[in-house]
Simulated assay, not measured.
Amino acid sequence: MHAAEVSVGDVVVVLGGGGVGVNAVQGARLSGAREVIMVDTNPAKLETATLFGASRTFQSMDDAAEYVREINGVVGGADAVIVCTGNTIEAIVTAAYGALGTRGRLVLAGMSQDVMEKNVQLPGTQIIFREQTIRGTIYGSCNPRRDVPLLLDLYKRGLLKLDELVSREYSLSDINEGFEDLRKGRNLRGVVAHG
């Protein structure tokens, strides 16, 4: 909603179908995006993304970029591409940029395993000619005082899925299993349950 500045009628591509990605899908949908496209290599994550509002899903960024160029005409690509991958390497950023249209916003929400890795290598002159924006975000660039009450209201009205995000609960003694499941992409969100 905030970092990608999604507005009514936009075409949005979300790359990475984990917890951050499906919430980016929800945010784009709630902001009025015309199309919200999820890209992930895991078919189970694509199926989950449709439950959270993705209008189309693809297992490859090339296929998603081709589809976006077909539907978005003169813009020539997505209005916003949001990268939410668990290990954001240079090839992922480059592929995401390849789907970006004129005046598009490329948002990096997924981090690399090595936080000092140089994973952004893009054609600067094209960015200038096409008036594109690249930015990073943490927590969706939210303002908790403004956004938490809004999110709670959306949840109460049934417009925001939160319960569906929790795919498994772990006891504190099973926390290492929870981290392993997170690394392997076995669940959307695991939580440590008290008691």
Rank of each mutant, 00 (worst) to 15 (best):
A3M: 08
S141I: 04
V25A: 08
G77R: 03
G185P: 06
V22N: 09
E5T: 08
G101V: 03
T41V: 15
G16T: 06
D79E: 12
G185C: 09
G158M: 06
S112D: 09
T48P: 00
V74C: 00
V120I: 15
Y67C: 12
G110W: 00
L30V: 08
D153G: 14
V166F: 01
E90H: 09
A96E: 02
Y67F: 15
I138R: 13
G53D: 09
A91R: 13
G86W: 10
L160K: 06
V13A: 14
A24C: 14
L100Y: 02
E164G: 04
G104E: 07
R103T: 09
G27L: 11
I128Q: 04
I175K: 07
V25Y: 07
T41I: 15
G17P: 09
L172C: 00
L108C: 04
D181K: 08
D10A: 02
K184E: 15
D79M: 01
D181T: 08
N119L: 03
I82D: 03
R29Y: 00
N87D: 15
S141L: 03
D181L: 08
G195R: 15
A65E: 11
P144T: 05
P123V: 06
T85N: 08
A193R: 15
G101Y: 01
V83E: 05
V14I: 14
